[in-house]
């Protein structure tokens, strides 16, 4: 996925999140390319460390087990889900 610039990326985020609000501009401003990084251009390890997976949870394992697998598959220290699919546990 490529974007023209940061604002174009944010516009696409708004579409993804179904945000229909308009923008109020306070000042015209540029960003210095020497600092930070565009979210879609992060070095791959950084991309993973700052990533989220929209996962289709399979039947069988619990949400917790699935997260543990993903952690191991990617060799991460931390991973977490956005709300369990087993509300009774």
């Amino acid at each position: 996925m490529e974007y023209k610039n940061g604002l174009d990326f944010i516009k696409k985020l708004d579409e993804y999140g179904d945000v229909k609000a308009n923008w109020i501009v306070k000042v015209e401003e540029e960003t210095n390319p020497n600092y930070g990084s565009f979210p879609w251009k992060r070095e791959i390890k950084e991309h993973i460390r700052n990533g989220v997976i929209n996962l289709d949870k399979p039947p069988g394992p619990t949400s917790h087990e699935v997260v543990a697998w993903i952690k191991r598959m990617l060799g991460l220290n931390k991973a977490g889900h956005g709300g369990t699919l087993e509300p009774h546990v």
């Binding site: 700052n50 990533g51 996962l55």
Partner: peptide, 21 residues
């Protein structure tokens, strides 16, 4: 997991490392 509902499927966003915040 005893009384859970592991058969439930679907959208489960999983955040990695820094994104867990």
């Amino acid at each position: 997991m005893g009384w859970g509902d592991p058969k439930v499927t679907g959208v489960l966003p999983v955040a990695l490392e820094n994104a867990t915040k």
